[in-house]
């Protein structure tokens, strides 16, 4: 299956591209996709936390992917500094290691 991966804002600048298309094996999840991207883009480490959305919905690392999915890696949104009073109800972020 093929999925489209979008990078935004600081991630886009850090990785030097705004999107890639990758062919994944059946059974791939958001988590396994991120693992693969980490290998492909070493700069992803140290990029800080990011959330994941599949087809414009926030999700976590365990979502099964399907052919044609659009996966977005979402760095902290613009309210970060303004003392946001809480986080998203889902906390889909992937922690750097």
């Amino acid at each position: 299956m093929k999925v489209r991966v979008l990078f935004f804002a600081s991630l886009r600048e850090r990785l030097g591209c705004s999107e890639v298309v990758r062919t994944l094996e059946a059974g791939a999840t958001t988590g396994s996709l991120v693992e693969r991207l980490r290998e492909e883009f070493p700069d992803l480490d140290g990029a800080g936390r990011f959330a994941i959305a599949v087809n414009s919905d926030y999700t976590d690392g365990g979502q099964a992917l399907a052919d044609g999915d659009e996966v977005a890696l979402i760095p902290p949104v613009s309210g970060g500094q303004d003392r946001a009073t809480g986080g998203p109800e889902k906390r889909p972020e992937t922690e750097r290691r």
Partner: peptide, 20 residues
């Protein structure tokens, strides 16, 4: 600078409990 991205090198937005 990207705002929201600079706190501690990790995204503060996703770590709501992080005590600035």
């Amino acid at each position: 600078v990207w705002i929201g991205d600079q706190c501690c090198g990790v995204g503060a937005w996703s770590d709501a409990a992080h005590a600035h």
